[in-house]
Amino acid sequence: MKTLLKKMGLLSATATVSLGTAVLPAAPAQAAQPICPQVIAVCTWTEPNFEGDSRLLFDEEAALQPPVRSAVNQDFQTWCFYDRPFFDNRGRTREVNRGETVYDFGFSALSAKRGQCVND
Rank of each mutant, 00 (worst) to 15 (best):
T14E: 11
C43V: 02
F107K: 10
G20W: 08
A13S: 13
P25H: 07
V17F: 15
P37S: 02
T3G: 12
P67R: 06
R84A: 09
C117L: 11
A13G: 07
P34Y: 05
R92H: 06
P28W: 00
L19R: 02
Y82C: 03
A63M: 09
G52F: 13
V39W: 00
F76A: 13
C43H: 06
P66Y: 05
W79Y: 03
Q74P: 04
Q65L: 13
A62Y: 01
N73Y: 06
F81Y: 10
K7S: 12
A29T: 05
P34C: 07
Q30A: 09
C36S: 09
L24Q: 13
K2C: 03
S108H: 13
D83Y: 05
V42F: 02
R98V: 00
P67L: 09
I40E: 10
A31N: 10
L4V: 08
W79E: 00
G20K: 10
A13I: 12
G115H: 03
G99D: 11
S54N: 11
D120I: 01
A13R: 03
T101N: 01
S12A: 14
G99L: 04
Q65C: 05
A41G: 03
A29Q: 09
L110M: 14
T44N: 08
A15K: 06
D75E: 00
V96D: 08
T101E: 11
P25S: 02
R84L: 11
L110R: 15
R55I: 00
T44D: 08
P37I: 04
L19S: 02
P37M: 03
Q116R: 12
D104F: 03
N119I: 02
P85M: 05
E95N: 15
V118S: 14
R90N: 14
Y82E: 05
K6C: 10
C80Q: 10
T46P: 12
I35R: 00
Q30V: 09
N49L: 09
E61H: 06
S108D: 14
S18N: 08
R94H: 13
Q30W: 11
F81T: 01
V102I: 15
S108P: 09
T16M: 15
